[in-house]
């Protein structure tokens, strides 16, 4: 799309969409939302960037290498947090018993490992969205 209005508005609005997505992810344990909703928001902002500026420019910003690291990093963060539970208590993905600080319920810094798991899910979902979209539209249908 070569419309100056769409390009300017998109450039203006994408940071706010992403900021809101990060807010939703980090407040997953005190308000509605969480990793899936926030990750979908960030992924959708990247899809919007691809739609407006084209696949080539989007590839420069979010290349295959970055998506590989984001995909694996999300799951690795999740599993390694679970392994902490195995080391300390002997069972997978334990929260309070494994010594994560419970904090003050209702504040952002609470809930033990729940916010960290939400960050892992958010990275995973966002990178999945954008990778699937790139893979589908890269296909040159004759």
């Amino acid at each position: 799309m070569n419309d100056i209005i769409i390009k300017s508005i998109t450039r203006l609005i994408i940071p706010f969409i992403q900021l809101y997505g990060v807010y939703i992810i980090l407040h997953g344990h005190v308000s509605p939302g969480g990793g899936f909703a926030g990750g979908a928001m960030i992924g959708t902002s990247l899809v919007l960037y691809t739609l407006v500026f084209g696949i080539d420019k989007s590839k420069q910003k979010f290349s295959h290498r970055v998506s590989e690291y984001a995909e694996s990093g999300g799951i690795l963060l999740y599993v390694s947090l679970g392994l902490i539970g195995i080391v300390i208590t002997g069972s997978f993905l334990t929260n309070i018993e494994a010594g994560f600080p419970i904090g003050n319920p209702g504040s952002v810094l609470s809930g033990g490992m729940i916010p960290l798991l939400m960050v892992g899910i958010g990275i995973k979902v966002a990178s999945t969205f954008i990778t699937l979209f790139h893979t589908l539209i890269e296909e040159e249908v004759v």
């Binding site: 997953g28 344990h29 005190v30 729940i114």
Partner: peptide, 26 residues
């Protein structure tokens, strides 16, 4: 769990293994 959002607490603590399977589906 220390989380006031019960959906988040179930998702990432009580049934976190389920959510791990979900990410593997993705």
């Amino acid at each position: 769990t220390g989380a006031i959002n019960v959906v988040g607490a179930i998702l990432a603590d009580y049934r976190a293994f389920d959510t791990l399977g979900e990410t593997i589906v993705l």
